[in-house]
Amino acid sequence: MAISADTARTVVGIIGNVISLFLFLSPVPTFVRIWKKKSVEQYSAVPYLATLVNCLVWTLYGLPMVHPGSILVVTINGSGTAIECAYIILFLIFCDKKKRLKVVLVVLLELIFIGVLTLLVLSLAHTHKKRSTVVGTICILFNIMMYASPLAVMKLVITTKSVEFMPFFLSFASLANGVAWTTYALIRFDPFITIPNGLGTLFGVAQLILYGTYYKSTQRLLAERKLNAKEVNLSEVVVADQEQHKKAANGHASQNH
């Protein structure tokens, strides 16, 4: 029995939703740490603010009045919007006043932007094709801006010859996410979903190639660091012992006098 294109697209879209949800939830350990320490420390709100506006634009794109038949785009990006809002609220609770003001201003700007975009698209573009083109183009631009993050990490890997700050499972999930959504977009061709997720797939492949290339050198660097830490600890113990012996010797000397 042949599977229809719509059924295949729905199945792939559900898989894409599950993988994307995993990616949205990947910063949870960071926020558990922030909650425990009652401080955002050196963490930046930029990734969460960038993801929030990205999710808002994609939610708009998937709405029936903009691009019909894209409910799975709405479900995952609607969920992503809620998750990013939770992250930002936690960030606001535990950051200082200066950071709090900046984050609140950026969120307000993002909400104004999405409000104005929605109003203009729905009132000035009167066909689904025009609305999809306008919102889809903005979606691609935001997605490309978000790819600056993997590029920065990849540069760090090449510079340090270490994959320590590029977790394997996150890179693998990014690749799986790109493949799932590119497949979803190709079943019933949608260039606005294909282009950014095609790029995401390429970046995912590049990250895994880097991981394979620098895995051994990373293990070597970590082993050297561990050894150095042991040597430092050992030298501290030796110095402490020497100081104790000196004190003991001085004590004996004073008693003799």
Rank of each mutant, 00 (worst) to 15 (best):
M1K: 09
A5Q: 04
D6L: 14
T7D: 05
R9S: 09
R9V: 00
I14M: 09
I19S: 03
F22D: 01
F31L: 14
R33I: 03
R33E: 13
I34M: 11
V46T: 15
P47C: 04
T51R: 03
V53M: 12
N54P: 01
T59Y: 05
Y61C: 08
L63P: 00
M65W: 14
P68C: 05
G69N: 04
G78L: 15
I83K: 07
C85G: 01
A86Y: 13
A86T: 12
Y87L: 08
I88Y: 06
F91A: 07
F91I: 04
L92Q: 12
F94L: 06
K97G: 01
L105I: 05
L105Y: 05
E110C: 00
I112V: 15
L117R: 12
T118R: 10
L119M: 13
V121T: 12
V121K: 01
S123D: 09
A125Q: 15
A125N: 06
H126E: 10
K129Y: 10
T133V: 11
T133G: 07
T133A: 14
V135E: 00
F142G: 08
P150Q: 06
P150F: 10
V153C: 06
K155V: 04
L156K: 13
F165G: 03
M166S: 14
F168W: 11
F169C: 05
N177A: 02
A180L: 09
W181I: 10
T182Y: 03
A185V: 02
L186Q: 04
I187H: 03
F189M: 08
D190S: 08
D190N: 13
F192T: 03
I195T: 13
G198R: 01
L199E: 03
G200Y: 11
T201M: 09
T201R: 02
V205H: 06
A206N: 04
I209W: 01
L210T: 02
Y214C: 10
T218L: 10
E224H: 12
N228C: 08
N228P: 02
K230Y: 10
E231P: 00
D241S: 07
Q244V: 02
K246W: 14
A248P: 01
G251H: 08
H252F: 05
S254M: 12
Q255D: 07
H257Q: 11
